[in-house]
Each structure stands twice: as structure tokens, then as C-alpha cells.
Nucleic acid binder design. Structure first.
Lengths: 341, 341
DNA sequence: ACTGATTGCGCAATCGATTGCAAGAAAATT
DNA sequence: AATTTTCTTGCAATCGATTGCGCAATCAGT
């Protein structure tokens, strides 16, 4: 008995419904809603008005099928060598947030795929499903080969990570080698000589940081000691064990270069718990400059990656590639942020 | 001059291509790939084989249009009262990760929408675009009305948050009122009497925590002092000011109940920087139990929300609603985790 | 060998939009 | 008034899959 609402959403409206309400064909409605100038302004406004009043929204499936584009970007996070299921590193959150801003600003949507245990062909399926117009991969993980294989024929693909050897895919990232060198040089300048390295070296970006570390050691004439390298994942519990292992094995070290801030922060915590004072006894440098690095006590010295710029670059390159222009990889300079550790 | 690869992906394959390669109609290919038993096993395997060899992947746009479902779930994060653009709270990352697991496990994809400055009708557009089969909203923010309006006619909608008064939408969350009470009772049990509250009370879930706080005070016969309430956002820089403001205004307090761990951790840091010892002079309790709460020094006492369970519940309810079954809101019990603050 | 049941597979309609082409109406020109 | 030009607007094909219906081939039963 209630008066019929202006919007009575019993059934999903299609363009034909709007067309018959206005008394025109779907062609006209389609053109009007697309802002095509061949439709006179008066009529266009009438159509827009009726569409709005009835809460009509274009069916994106149909539109996508006809137009051969979806206005969706796939953001994939491969977790190849991460044992745990969870992404616990805030680095990802900031990156996702920045990418979301950039993608939304261009009128696109973001399809997030967490690729927990990469099966063969995951990236190829992603590229061929035609569900998305482009793919961004955050971190190479151990998927270097898969990336190369797909990049061979799929243009709109941009990867955040290191410029791995033999990579034929487009990467955006900071100069990880330089970052590793800067971190190590900083520790050397503090007088540290026994510098440990903590991180997952299977990931190309970490491998480059590691090379920078060894390069800096060599340049300073400090002998490289393999027992000071501990392999850990990016997850939260793993670095704990990594640091403990170093201590338990009796390795004597006076500094830690951690492959990520999360690993760095955890190292600081474990060292403190073991009675090793940071920074008096042991210095620590992280990588990323996540928000928590600044906030923690003591504040973590780290190598900063500018994610705002990085995300903007990735999206910029991706859209160029989607437009058919070839876009080259980009490398940005990291910077050393000296804090208390 | 290179030998033609087994997969020559010059052009995107459609089902008709596979059909002509096998020598059958698209109907048969479609049925075979869908595992329809009317297709004899031998033929089905031949079709599957050829499809695989040629890297054929079903066009999801076309499939979605025909089937009237997309196999995509929209996860929306409204940031109504967050001044900053960024989601910096790790709570979101863990939640997104858990939801991604649940959604992927059911063969669906996750479309992530960061709704930075909610415009009128954002949720309605989301629901009507037919780009997704259901919508999950993480946190009510200040969008209570929008949620109510859309829930009126759109079934597959589940919200993470508090059971706000007059909410006609389906919510999943912990009992925020009980959580607020538990936190406050814990502080009272420690002998604290001047307990400050920090958080954004516009969000319904925070409002409930606040009510629990006041309820506990009243039950203990401790006078409520409005000058001990400071409004802050969930971002990282804002709590800093919130705490400083309390101190600067000369409010004397011996405990802080923070509406989130991020606010709690920041409070600890600021208090320490101001020379107020935690926990000797001031006790702090947070909310969420993010990974960092355990890891920080001193480790943060907090009210734990079980996000793994919460995410599973949300997705479970959403899929029930997508199937047309009415599914009621769910409330889980939080638990007090006593640590060092 | 003939009828009826069963199985295997293709035809063609359908999902909801977009757009090239062209027809009819209106305006401008001669 | 007749013709040309310009505006509007609709017809119908198209994007790539799914599926109800029905025809032909195979098989079983007598």
C-alpha cells in the first residue's frame, strides 16, 4: 500500500529499460551516457536524469565484452618462498594502498590476487583470462622464469622488484645493489667490521642487496664471512629464529644488515632480549622504511624506498604498455635514513 | 626462422578456435570444459588436451555475461573519517590477507576498493555494476546510512564492524562493547582510576568500545571525566598529537585505553618520549592484537580480535546470502591479552 | 528386421552493451 | 518549391561464452 518509490529496484535494470522509459532506442541511451556529442544536449540530460533517478548502472560485464577491455588491473603478490600463508609485511600494505590510489585515479579497479603457492601457469592464466587489462606483480619472489615466459607475449605487465639478470620483463624498483652497498658502507663507517646479513636470497631484489653488501665489504677490504649470512623469510616469526641461530652458533658480529625493515625490527627485538644492546653493541640497518621503522624504539636506521613514486611509476609504465607503447624498466635511487640503530 | 612453437599466441583464442581444431562445435567444447557428463570421457580429454596445449583460457567477460555471475567479491575499505589518504593500520593488511585466503579457497577473486572520500551512492554503484557477486565492507567508518540504504535491497552484503544501533545490514565483528569493558576493567584492576580514551568515536565499532569503557567506569564507581577523551584518527601521525594534547592540556591520567593497537603503540612511544614510564606511571591497553603488538618493546597489552575466524565468518555469511539464504549477523568474543603495558 | 530407448552433439537464442551504416526529418540553399 | 546539407536516431551485427531443444546415430529388446 505504500506509494511507489521513485526508485523501485525490484529487478535489475538494463539499458533497454531506460530506453523504453525515455522513448528512444538503446543506441541513443548508450551514446547519451557515453557523452557522445551527436546526441543533443537536451535529450542527453533527460536520459541522464532518468538513468540516475532509477539508479541505473551500466553492466560492466556486457560493456567489457563488447569493448574488449575491463578497466581492471590485476595486482598479484606471489609468495613463492614464504612458508607462512600470511603477508605480514606492512610494505605490502603501503604498496597496495599507493597502487590503489594510482589505479583509482585513472578510473580503473584493482583485482588483488595473493598467489600463495604458485602453480605452473598462474601468470599465464591471469593474462589470458581477459578479466583484466594489465597485470602488476609485487615482488619477484622465486617466479623469475614465469615472469619471463609470460612477458614474452604479454605486453601489459610490470613487476616491482630488482633488475634480475636476464629479465625480459619490465621492472620498477630501487637500485637494490646500491641500497645494499649504502647500508653496508654506513655500518663500515661506524667502525663495524663483522656485519651479518639476514634475508631470503632467492628473491632477486634481495640477491642484489646481498651483492651490494659483499661489494661494499670487498671495497673496504673487509673479509667476507659466510657464517654471517642467515637465510630467513619475510614473515614475522622466521627472523626471530634467524637471529637466534646466529647467536647460538656463536657467530660474533657487531652489525646486522636486514633485507627488510620487518626483519630488522625483529632483529633489534631479539638482540635486546638476548642482552645485546642496540646500537651500542650491535648496529642494525633495515630496508624499505616502513612507517614503523620511524616509530619503533629505538627508531630503525634503514634504506628508504619511495613507494609513492614507485607505485606511480609502475602504473604509468603499465598504462603506456597497455596503450601499445613500449616502456622500459625504471630504477630509482634509494636513500639512507640514519636513525638510532 | 624458428620452428613454430606448440603454442603460438599471436592472437587470442576463443572457444570457436578450439572447436574447429578439434572438429566439434563450441557447444561441445563448452560442455567438455565444464565437465558436463553428457560428453564422453575420451572426447572430453581430447578437448581438454588441445585447450591446454594452446593455452586456451575461457573469456571471463563473456562467461560472466551469460551466467550472470562474475565469481568476484568486492572488498571495500571506506575511509570516511580518515584525513590521510593512506591505510596505515596493519589491521587492514591482515584482514585483507585472511579474506583473500577465504575467497580464493572458494574459487572466487577479490576486487579491492579503497573508498577514500565516499561519494554519495558509492556502495549502490558497486552493488549495481554487476561486476561482482557480493560486497564485503571492512569497517563502517562513517557510512552507516549508506550501508543501511543499500542493504535494503541488496542481499549479498556483509560488513565488518560493530552492531550499530538501527543497523539493518549484516555485520560480523567482535563484541566491541564487551571488549571496551574488558580493557577498562583490566586497567581498573591494576588500580588505575584516571583512564584516558583515544580513538575516532564516529566509527560505530569504536563508539561501542567507548560505551564499554564508560560502563566499566560506572560499574566501578569511578567518575567519568570527559577531558580524558581524545579524538584521533586511525592514521599514524594523528595519535601522536592526541596524546600530546592530553599531556599539554595538563590532564592527569594514569592509563590509556586506545581504540586500536596502532594508536596504543604510538601512545606508548609518545609517553616514553615525554618521560612518562610505561607501565610504571601509565598503563596502556590497545585493541586488535596486530602482530606488532606482541613484538613491540614493551609488548602491548591488548584486546584480541580473532581475524582468521572473523574473515571466515564474513565470507561464509556472504556466500550464504549470495545463495539466497538469509544469514544473520555474527558477534564473536574478544579476549584480553595481558602483556607488558 | 523393426520399434523404442538411449546417447552424442549441433543449431540457434541469449546475456547487455556498443557502433557502423543508413534512413528520415529538419534546416539551409538555390 | 525543389534540392542539398546537416541533424537525429534507429537497425542490426558484434563481443564470446552457455544451454534448451531436437535430430541423428547407436544400442537393446522382441
Amino acid at each position: 500500500m505504500s506509494a511507489p518509490d521513485s526508485s523501485e529496484p525490484n529487478r535489475r535494470l538494463k539499458m533497454a529499460d531506460i530506453a523504453s522509459m525515455v522513448g528512444v532506442s538503446t543506441s541513443t541511451v548508450s551514446r547519451a551516457l557515453a557523452g557522445n556529442p551527436v546526441i543533443p544536449q537536451a535529450l542527453r540530460e533527460r536520459i541522464e536524469g532518468i538513468a540516475r533517478e532509477n539508479g541505473y548502472v551500466v553492466n560492466q560485464q556486457a560493456r567489457g565484452l563488447r569493448m574488449q577491455r575491463t578497466h581492471v588491473i590485476n595486482v598479484a603478490i606471489p609468495l613463492g618462498h614464504e612458508s607462512g600463508q600470511l603477508i605480514s609485511d606492512p610494505f605490502f600494505l603501503e604498496m597496495i594502498g599507493r597502487l590503489a590510489d594510482e589505479i583509482t585515479a585513472r578510473g580503473y579497479e584493482l583485482l588483488l590476487s595473493k598467489v600463495a603457492a604458485p602453480e605452473a601457469g598462474w601468470l599465464e592464466r591471469m593474462a589470458r583470462s581477459q578479466r583484466v587489462d594489465g597485470v602488476l606483480v609485487i615482488g619477484q619472489s622465486d617466479q623469475h622464469e614465469a615472469l619471463n615466459a609470460t612477458a614474452e607475449w604479454y605486453e601489459p605487465l610490470v613487476v616491482w622488484g630488482g633488475a634480475a639478470e636476464g629479465a625480459r620483463y619490465c621492472t620498477v624498483g630501487v637500485d637494490n645493489f646500491a641500497g645494499g652497498r649504502m647500508a653496508t658502507e654506513h655500518l663500515l663507517a661506524l667502525g663495524r667490521r663483522r656485519i651479518a646479513f639476514l634475508g631470503p636470497p632467492q628473491a632477486p631484489e634481495v640477491a642484489l642487496r646481498y651483492e651490494g653488501y659483499r661489494e661494499a665489504l670487498a671495497a673496504a677490504g673487509v673479509a667476507y664471512d659466510p657464517t654471517l649470512t642467515a637465510t630467513t623469510h619475510f614473515t614475522l616469526s622466521d627472523p626471530t629464529e634467524g637471529v637466534r641461530r646466529l647467536i647460538d652458533e656463536g657467530a660474533s658480529f657487531d652489525a646486522v644488515f636486514a633485507a627488510s625493515d620487518l626483519i630488522g625490527l625483529e632483529s633489534v627485538r631479539v638482540l635486546a632480549a638476548e642482552g645485546l644492546d642496540v646500537p651500542d653493541t650491535v648496529s642494525v640497518v633495515g630496508f624499505d622504511d616502513i612507517a614503523l621503522a620511524r616509530q619503533s624504539v629505538p627508531a630503525l636506521t634503514t634504506i628508504r624506498q619511495n613507494l609513492a613514486e614507485g607505485a606511480a611509476r609502475m602504473v604509468d609504465l603499465l598504462f603506456r604498455r597497455m596503450a601499445g607503447e613500449p616502456a622500459p624498466s625504471a630504477m630509482m635511487q634509494p636513500s639512507l635514513i640514519v636513525r638510532q640503530t
